[in-house]
Design a protein around this nucleic acid. Structure first.
Length: 474
RNA sequence: GUAGAUAUAGCUCAGCUGGUUAGAGCGUCGGAUUGUGAUUCCGAAGGUCGUGGGUUCGAGCCCCAUUAUUUACCCCA
């Protein structure tokens, strides 16, 4: 049998001890903030039934779902799950017969499914957080993986804008705790987008596509937006609305968020001929103003990190209210967090009229940002505090009670398992970042003492047992 | 799905216009030092040059195909 080079699937990664330690640091910060805000943990299965997942993420999302092949021989003539006619009809026809399960694509949809299934036992408003990996059959590239962790916090069962305000508070606290102070929390409202679409006089049926182009204003500029709208077959070329939006994005005369809110509100009054249209846009503005007011009353001060952006468009297939996104300004990386309010998500599972709002951190991207900015605190890859070195099998045996006593004293410790030269054992401790090496040779034993070396200073001390414990626990 | 880049030792990479036996640093192992790491000195091991074909007297280098990785677009955390 030929030896094959081992490999892992595209877009997946191994995490070594040092990386896990740093990832856990990020998870810890996020978890503490979520719990401080009263969210309770939830975990759902890695696999969901495909019927739960399909149709929730738009057409493109369906293609990015990892499907799990059914067990059993579905081509077997007796069972005949797949018939000859199916095979001739093509893969679309066969798929539902050979794959009934799929890997989790995000945490929001499984959460909605959970809420519907457990509606009788939950206390509403229900606040949950969830930290688990999700999978997308995407092309990997910078900051994009096929397996990655999301950290979600969502509330269902209340329309209160307090939830939106608390999302901003949680986002801000996590990022500032991690040291990512150069960030912008962008906020918009689905109704503001709809208002802009009305103002542009475009057809509601192509709304999502219109928003996708609008979202690129920062990236491709107003000329780019005009051109792409034409290419995509939009026909109204009165660009008065675009002039308005450009003013809010003028880099030289940066507007504050409250100025922008007033300005966009004025735009709706100015352009709208249809009064219903104005109502939609203005409703979005009023809700955003409500969120800003709650933040102010709460005592939130970092309004320089919070920005109302009327072109921000995310999660178009299900967000219906506020929309959030976080950009780290001094790193070239996609958004590290996103979220919003969705009125109809549980409706897809037969429970209409329950509003939810939530958001998600992408841990892997946060990690990449912290790495690039050198913001990780000095990580201790090894938890071991003391290595017991030995000279031979006999002294190793005599050190076993010492090992036990160290551990009983709560000092993480290990005994070098092989007979090896002291040099090799010290090298091992150094490579693993173990701060102390303890040894007791015939000389020390005769004197009832131990030799303890601190590797960072190179200092060696001859100590009795109590002094060893005192040094290691200090 | 569309377009580009890369592939040489465990890792990071050199390798000239195609020319004898493919190199360095780091790491590993051994020794200087049979009771001491990080530092110093000496030495050694480690390669079907991603894979398959072609051109050539001769290919790590040129051509074609293929696979993997990676970047950008689309979309997204």
């Amino acid at each position: 049998m030929s030896v094959q080079k081992p490999s892992i699937p595209q877009g997946t990664r191994d995490f070594g001890p040092a990386v896990v330690a740093r990832r856990n640091y990020i998870f810890g910060v996020i978890r503490r903030v979520f719990e401080k805000f009263g969210y309770a943990p939830l975990e759902t299965p890695t696999m969901e039934n495909l019927s739960v997942l399909t149709g929730k993420y738009g057409e493109e999302g369906d293609q990015l779902l990892f499907k799990v092949l059914n067990s059993g021989d579905f081509l077997n003539k007796k069972n005949a799950a797949v018939t000859t006619e199916d095979l001739e009809a093509g893969s679309k026809k066969i798929l539902p017969k050979i794959a009934e399960k799929g890997l989790r694509y995000d945490l929001t949809v499984p959460f909605a499914r959970y809420v519907v299934m457990n509606r009788g036992t939950l206390t509403f408003p229900f606040k949950r957080y969830q930290i688990q990996p999700v999978w997308r059959a995407d092309r990997p590239q910078r900051g994009r993986y096929r397996e990655f962790y999301q950290c979600d916090a969502d509330v269902v069962g209340t329309d209160s804008l307090l939830c939106e305000a608390e999302i901003v508070l949680m986002m801000s606290e996590v990022l500032n705790t991690l040291g990512l102070t150069e960030h912008t929390i962008k906020i918009n409202h689905r109704d503001v987008l709809s208002g802009v679409r009305f103002a542009a006089g475009e057809d509601p049926s192509k709304e999502s596509e219109f928003f996708v182009v609008l979202d690129k204003l920062d990236k491709i500029g107003s000329e780019g937006v005009k051109q792409e709208l034409k290419e995509r077959g939009f026909h109204n070329f009165g660009f008065q609305w675009l002039e308005y939006l450009l003013r809010t994005h003028d880099g030289n005369k940066r507007m504050s968020s409250s100025e922008r809110l007033k300005y966009v509100s004025f735009m709706f009054e100015d352009i709208m001929s249809d009064s219903n249209a104005e109502v939609v846009g203005s409703k979005g503005i009023r809700e955003l103003e409500g969120v800003f007011r709650i933040l102010k009353d709460f005592g939130f001060t970092q309004f320089d990190q919070l920005e109302f952006d009327p072109t921000l468009a995310r999660g178009l297939s299900y967000y219906t209210g506020c929309i959030f996104e976080i950009k780290i300004n001094n790193v070239n990386m996609g958004s590290v967090s996103g979220g919003g309010r969705y009125d109809n998500l549980t409706g897809a599972f037969g429970l209409p009229g329950v509003s939810g709002v939530g958001f998600s951190f992408g841990v892997d991207r946060l990690y990449d940002c912290l790495e690039e900015l050198n913001l990780f605190p000095e990580a201790v890859a090894t938890t071991t505090r003391c290595l017991i070195a030995s000279f031979d099998a006999e002294t190793a045996r005599l050190m076993l009670p010492v090992l036990r006593q160290l551990r009983e004293a709560g000092i993480p410790s290990e005994l070098y398992p092989d007979e090896a030269k002291l040099g090799k054992q010290f090298k091992y401790a150094d490579a693993k970042g173990i701060p102390y090496v303890l040894l007791q040779g015939p000389e020390e034993r005769a004197a009832g003492q131990f030799k303890l070396k601190e590797l960072s200073t190179g200092q060696e001390q001859l100590l009795n047992w109590d002094a060893v414990l005192a040094e290691l626990t200090k």
